[in-house]
Amino acid sequence: MSERRNGWAHVVLIVGSLVMLFPFAWQLITSLSTNAEVTSIPITIWPSSLHFENYATVFERLPFLSQFAISVVITLIRVLGQLLLGAMAGYAFARMRFPGRDAIFAVVLAILMVPPQVFLISQYQIVQSLGWLDTVAGIVAPGIFTAFSAFLMRQFFLGLPEELEEAARLDGANPFQVFWRVMLPLARPGLSALAVIGVLASWNDLLWPLVVATKPGQQPLSVGLATLQGQYVTDYPVLMAAALLACAPILIVFLIMQRRVIDGLAFSGMK
């Protein structure tokens, strides 16, 4: 099949991409406008001049870099924890036998179905009784344990061939060695996918860090962004500039891991 025969496919995909991209592009333009232009009617899409100083304002209003650093630390800990725990639990749910396995898994799944706000006050009190308020441990603790990670990894392991495991086992490896040396490397695409999803969730998490970390020096970027919104009046161009700055690193992570992500999510299709 030649590229020529894909002509219509390109037309459809380009139109689709434009639809996907349009609100984003507008956000970019908004971040370079004045507030008066953003709220003008009829709506002016293109600003009279480009106001790059909105980006400078972000750095003035927020301790952007330090909040960025805190976000990175929180996200790293949380995502690494999710990967390890999710992979181990997912492997056990997929390949090991133990009493009540499926019932336990169903309960884990059910957690995904409860509105996240339900957990807020209880988790706060638990973290408080652990003495973890205003600590990194408090911010990351609940987020390390996610039902989604176990679900995702279980689906992935279910799709991997069992022969390799068998071979390793016959070589005398214990289950942990089988998991660590054989299965985990095979699961790398799945882990990549989980990593991107986990990074995104942790990076944008707002309510929990807001409630748990009240000391200004400990707040992540998501909280900083939220403080840009006033009760009545919001400086939209600055908010947009900040939002774009904040999601830029995730986009870079995505681009780097793109191939892996796309391969990695493949497993999800299985079952």
Partner: peptide, 29 residues
């Protein structure tokens, strides 16, 4: 489709909205 040019670029475009911060993108919508 086999030998489709630019498929990675398209994929990135389609993935972008998933990155959007609801509060910011809501204004645009």
């Amino acid at each position: 489709r086999p030998r489709l040019r630019g498929s990675m670029t398209y994929r990135t475009m389609f993935f972008l909205p998933y990155l959007a911060m609801p509060v910011a993108i809501a204004l645009v919508w």
